[in-house]
Design a protein around this nucleic acid. Sequence first.
DNA 1: CCTCCACCGGAAAGCCGGGTCA
DNA 2: TGACCCGGCTTTCCGGTGGAGG
Length: 401
Amino acid sequence: MAEGSLETFFEVFLRKNSVFFDKKALQASYTPETILHREEQTKQLANILAPALKGDKPSNIFIYGKTGTGKTVTTKQTTKKLAEVAERENIPIKILYINCKLKRSTDTEYRLIAQLARELGKSIPPTGLPTEEVYNTFFKALNIQQQNYILILDEIDQLINKTGDNALYNLTRINEDIEPQISIIGISNDLMFVERLDPRVRSSLSEEEIVFPPYNAFQLQSILKSRAEISFNKDVLEQGLIEKCAAYAARDHGDARRALELLRVAGEIADRKSAKKVTITDIDEAEQKIDKDRIIDTITTQPKQYQLVLYSILTLQPNRRNNIFTGEVYEVYKKLCSKTNTNILTQRRVSDIISEFDMLGIVNAKVISKGRYGRTRDISLEVPENLFAKIKNTLEENINI
DNA sequence: CCTCCACCGGAAAGCCGGGTCA
DNA sequence: TGACCCGGCTTTCCGGTGGAGG
């Protein structure tokens, strides 16, 4: 593109009509004034937390619901209101919010406690100290500030899956030897994880439980409508668009986040076509684009060894009449390693990598028995076939074959 | 009915690079 | 500087197993 034309491009872009008025209400970070269809849960939560205002310790709460059912936003909103009242009335309550999924900051015992201590104004090095030491600093900080705490642990299942329930165990029994009281709100979208907890932790954590059911299509519709009013210009949405969008999202799990994303991407697609209206076919396109981007993104962000394994599976895949087994993948992988000058991992490790791809939904790997011919995994790709070539190219670039 | 394949998958331990502290 | 800690990734070791074929 010549220089002049690039400038014109930007100018044209700036003047171009967009279907959007203000995109922010469709973005993931946006918190609406009122949270629709979560009145019941808000009330429950408020009821449980309210005693904190009188200096009592609220019960610990376990909050469960699928992704995009408003768990986080409702919890944050409710606790924020609580904190505001407390502040006004001079009641010492402090809210701590921790998202346990954040890589390299709160996903291990050390890091979680360190982060908590930091929230209380202590400075803790990111590594190096014994965990014991970090606990001590944290406890000390708690004791100095005479107030009650509400600790929100979002995506708590991530923490337990990775590092066990040690941290949780220590946190739940904190009140036994320390003056200030701590209430824990655990948020999870995986109900099964509770069963892996130490029974003592489990009963302590779920003194109260609140369930966030998925939104149905009608609820999604009203959510979308309220956001669309802020985000889009007048009359740019084709008749029935919102309904369709809601129906799509309701079909898989009633995920409001996904519904909003669908609507936003559909709008962006319409913009790119310089269309005056967002049409229903844009929604279909948006759905495909979102899936595709997600897949490509997860693949390209994998470490090199993972990409090599995936590439091996991919080379075995084309017009395969029968299925792919671990042993075959490993053979191809070994050759690939020597070709690319990479050190070869053990089959045990590669086997783990394959099951990680299975969990990411990129690959389907079921353990089967071939009787006389042993046990193995039956592996197949889970991505749409029209992406095979694209993925293969991307991988080739990344690992330079 | 028994055997025995080709892996599975848990446990433990090692290595390495990040760090603290005295 | 040396002893020690944490966490991610990997290896080593090894008991376990569904079912085709004898």
